[in-house]
């Protein structure tokens, strides 16, 4: 019953042990660890785990935490439904960009 798992990424169910194992297999950047283990690719898009994962990686690599490179976090930052997106007036972004040129 008592299952002593420490969960690093709740959405994708990645344990701290799995993350460390992936590091020992040679994945040494947050980006590749994300792709290999799934850390930060779930519903919350890394809101809940990215700083924890980065801190753990800093320890594993024995480097200062600020030296850990963050992964790309693409918009949107939370899941949206097609219904919600369908209500959007898409071209709104374009004129602003052209205006600047």
């Amino acid at each position: 019953m008592s299952n002593p798992k420490t969960i690093l990424c709740r959405c994708e169910d990645v344990t701290l042990e799995e993350f460390r194992e992936a590091f020992s297999e040679g994945f040494s950047e947050l980006e590749s660890l994300k792709r290999y283990t799934g850390t930060g690719t779930g519903f919350c898009q890394g809101k809940g785990c990215m700083s924890e994962a980065a801190a753990e990686l800093a320890v594993l690599r024995n480097i200062p935490p600020e030296k850990v490179r963050l992964t790309t976090i693409r918009p949107p930052a939370e899941p949206l439904t097609f219904g919600q997106l369908a209500s959007l007036d898409v071209p709104e972004f374009q004129p602003a960009r052209e205006e600047e040129r």
């Binding site: 990215m50 700083s51 980065a54 801190a55 800093a58 935490p65 600020e66 030296k67 850990v68 963050l70």
Partner: peptide, 9 residues
């Protein structure tokens, strides 16, 4: 960048 004394990124 990660600043642990500030709680995160």
């Amino acid at each position: 960048s990660l600043q642990q004394d500030r709680g995160g990124f």
